[in-house]
Simulated assay, not measured.
Amino acid sequence: MAISKDLIRGHIDTIILNILNQSDSYGYQVGKSARILSQNQYDLNEATLYTAFRRLEKSGDITSYWGDETQGARRKYYKITPAGQAHLTHAIAEWAFAKNVISQLITGTIAEGEES
């Protein structure tokens, strides 16, 4: 079963921040890391990835710099900022709360006498 892109859409920034919180990285590698983390269940396409990089850089959550490649093309690397780390911490807390609420809404039952 493949995961719906609609379910992931609102979490792209958090996914990228999590990956960059582990180490600075460049676009292709961030996409590859997302595939690895999802056990090949999700593919972060290039257009979505670079749109998110621009948004995160504009908001101050990440910065970019050019790598010093000795072979091949020069790569643009992305690095999480302290503001990005704070954003990530907040997003993880929000996700944990939302995950529990959504789970209850989808699978929970109302016990007799609980109606309001």
Rank of each mutant, 00 (worst) to 15 (best):
M1V: 14
A2H: 13
A2D: 14
A2M: 14
A2I: 14
I3L: 15
S4D: 10
S4A: 11
S4I: 04
K5E: 07
K5Q: 08
L7F: 02
L7K: 05
I8M: 08
I8V: 11
I8S: 06
R9E: 13
G10N: 03
G10K: 03
G10C: 00
G10R: 03
H11Y: 09
I12T: 04
T14P: 05
I16L: 00
I16M: 00
N18Y: 01
N18I: 00
I19G: 01
I19F: 00
Q22C: 03
S25C: 01
S25A: 02
G27R: 00
G27F: 00
Y28N: 06
Q29T: 01
G31F: 00
K32N: 01
R35A: 03
L37F: 02
L37Q: 08
Q39D: 07
Q39C: 06
N40V: 05
N40R: 07
Q41W: 02
Q41C: 04
Y42M: 09
Y42L: 09
D43E: 15
D43L: 14
N45A: 08
E46R: 11
E46C: 09
E46H: 09
A47H: 05
T48R: 02
T48Q: 03
L49D: 02
L49M: 06
Y50S: 09
T51I: 12
T51H: 11
A52M: 05
F53A: 07
R54W: 03
R54Q: 13
R54N: 13
R55K: 09
R55N: 08
L56S: 02
L56K: 07
E57S: 01
K58E: 15
G60W: 00
D61C: 13
I62R: 05
T63W: 09
T63Y: 11
W66N: 15
G67W: 03
D68P: 10
D68I: 08
D68G: 14
D68N: 15
E69V: 03
Q71R: 15
G72E: 07
G72W: 05
A73H: 07
A73Y: 04
R74W: 04
K76D: 02
Y77Q: 11
Y77H: 13
Y77R: 10
Y78E: 04
Y78R: 08
K79D: 07
T81V: 06
T81M: 03
A83D: 10
A83K: 14
G84C: 12
Q85N: 13
Q85E: 15
H87P: 04
T89I: 07
T89R: 10
T89N: 10
H90W: 10
I92W: 01
I92R: 10
I92V: 08
A93K: 10
E94F: 05
W95L: 12
W95S: 11
W95R: 14
W95H: 13
W95C: 06
W95Y: 13
F97W: 12
A98T: 10
A98F: 05
A98N: 10
A98V: 09
K99H: 09
N100D: 13
N100Y: 07
V101D: 05
V101A: 08
I102Q: 08
S103Y: 05
Q104Y: 12
I106H: 12
I106R: 14
I106E: 13
I106T: 10
T107K: 10
G108W: 02
T109V: 12
T109I: 09
I110K: 07
A111E: 13
E112S: 14
E112V: 13
G113D: 02
G113I: 01
E115N: 11
S116G: 13
S116D: 08
S116A: 13
S116V: 12
